[in-house]
Simulated assay, not measured.
Amino acid sequence: MTRHTTRMLIIGSGPAGLSAAIYAARAGMEPIVVQGLQPGGQLTITTDVENYPGFRDVIQGPWLMEQMQAQAEHVGTRMMWDTIVEVDVESGPPFVARGDSGDEYVGDTLVIATGAQAKWLGVPGEEALSGKGVSACATCDGFFYRGKKVAVIGGGNTAVEEALYLTNHSEDVTLIHRREDLRAEKILQDRLFAHPRISVLWNKRVERFLGDPLQGGLTGLQLADTVTGEMSEFGCEGAFVAIGHAPSTELFKGKLEIDANGYIVVAPGTPKTNRPGVFACGDVMDHTYRQAVTAAGTGCMAALDAERFLATLEYVRNEQQAAAAE
């Protein structure tokens, strides 16, 4: 077992974690980033990225994360190929985390950037056609379906918001829901039903995504009627799975304040959790925006607040030592 120590320990290596690392490293904090099961986060499974500031042309998600990691390492970040399986946030600072490798990671501050994962249907064709007509983020990918027929799958706030957003790009948006009523807030439902570009298919469950990823991508959906069991096909060029996100917070349940949807609770407008010295950034605390650029912004905030926390902690310790010496 090896013990690694740092002034800032970052769990997660998506845009939030790497942005925190860049700012911390530039401040001389020699941060450690433990990359986790999906190094680079959700952008590593995103192909075309057209809305990240600074790039005129379409870029690739994996490439963007490679550039962020290279920058973080260049300014002094230590990247660890490990997955954290246990964290002690109650006894710190310092905070101790144990990796799947058996190594221990000790940080004077802890930044949680473990992200969230879109929930998928898990039906045939979904994985193969991901990025080829199937997406879990209309804000990210809707632009690529300008003028095309698209479907949104789901019945909660996320699905209704995605459908409304897609009307900016498509004149033919269909919401597909497995029940006969929506779970979304009434004000969102009212906007949905009043929109001339949106139609709704009730009591329909997606059984399969149709199409060939090598020959044009998605062509439609195979649907089952949840009342009669009757099978049908629905033609579309884009399908957005909008059944929610699952934040990666299992490690912190019972240790930090977590809301009813599983997101880490932070003080409004900050990345500060209910444990001094522990900060959360990116999709693990953001259930509203969930964009790479907003994740990066909160990563920056986490690093700056962690630096201020350490400065205050050092000042208090110095005062205590001076008082004890008198």
Score class of each variant (00 low, 15 high):
residue 11 I to T: 05
residue 311 A to F: 07
residue 106 V to I: 15
residue 155 G to H: 11
residue 178 R to K: 13
residue 185 E to K: 09
residue 119 K to S: 04
residue 306 A to L: 11
residue 97 A to T: 09
residue 23 Y to M: 05
residue 323 A to F: 05
residue 58 V to M: 02
residue 259 D to V: 14
residue 243 I to W: 14
residue 298 T to M: 08
residue 316 V to C: 00
residue 37 L to F: 04
residue 11 I to C: 03
residue 66 E to A: 13
residue 37 L to W: 05
residue 171 E to N: 13
residue 10 I to A: 03
residue 109 T to C: 10
residue 320 Q to M: 05
residue 218 L to D: 06
residue 216 G to Y: 09
residue 131 G to Q: 09
residue 304 L to A: 08
residue 116 A to Q: 01
residue 116 A to N: 07
residue 189 Q to F: 05
residue 240 F to C: 08
residue 320 Q to D: 04
residue 290 R to C: 00
residue 263 Y to P: 10
residue 27 A to R: 08
residue 180 E to T: 15
residue 5 T to V: 05
residue 248 S to R: 15
residue 226 T to R: 12
residue 48 D to C: 04
residue 146 R to D: 09
residue 106 V to R: 09
residue 225 D to R: 13
residue 240 F to A: 00
residue 303 A to V: 11
residue 303 A to F: 06
residue 143 F to M: 03
residue 277 G to D: 08
residue 84 I to C: 12
residue 259 D to P: 12
residue 58 V to K: 02
residue 83 T to W: 10
residue 125 G to W: 05
residue 241 V to H: 11
residue 93 P to R: 12
residue 321 Q to T: 02
residue 145 Y to P: 04
residue 82 D to G: 04
residue 238 G to S: 12
residue 2 T to I: 09
residue 138 A to N: 04
residue 46 T to C: 03
residue 325 A to M: 02
residue 231 M to T: 07
residue 104 E to F: 13
residue 111 V to D: 05
residue 317 R to Q: 08
residue 316 V to G: 02
residue 98 R to M: 14
residue 56 R to S: 08
residue 255 K to V: 01
residue 204 K to Q: 14
residue 4 H to R: 12
residue 91 S to P: 10
residue 86 E to T: 15
residue 68 M to A: 05
residue 54 G to R: 02
residue 276 P to D: 13
residue 39 P to K: 11
residue 284 V to F: 04
residue 243 I to N: 07
residue 255 K to W: 01
residue 239 A to M: 15
residue 159 A to R: 03
residue 159 A to F: 11
residue 9 L to H: 13
residue 317 R to D: 04
residue 55 F to R: 09
residue 275 R to K: 15
residue 95 F to G: 07
residue 205 R to T: 00
residue 102 G to F: 07
residue 323 A to P: 00
residue 217 G to V: 11
residue 126 E to V: 09
residue 319 E to S: 01
residue 133 G to W: 04
residue 94 P to T: 10
residue 180 E to C: 04
residue 305 D to K: 02
residue 266 V to T: 15
residue 275 R to I: 00
residue 162 E to L: 02
residue 240 F to T: 00
residue 166 L to Q: 13
residue 21 A to Y: 10
residue 178 R to Y: 11
residue 45 I to N: 03
residue 80 M to T: 01
residue 130 S to W: 15
residue 162 E to A: 14
residue 169 H to N: 12
residue 88 D to Q: 01
residue 247 P to R: 10
residue 242 A to I: 03
residue 142 G to C: 05
residue 87 V to S: 13
residue 56 R to F: 15
residue 162 E to Q: 09
residue 100 D to V: 13
residue 225 D to E: 06
residue 127 E to F: 03
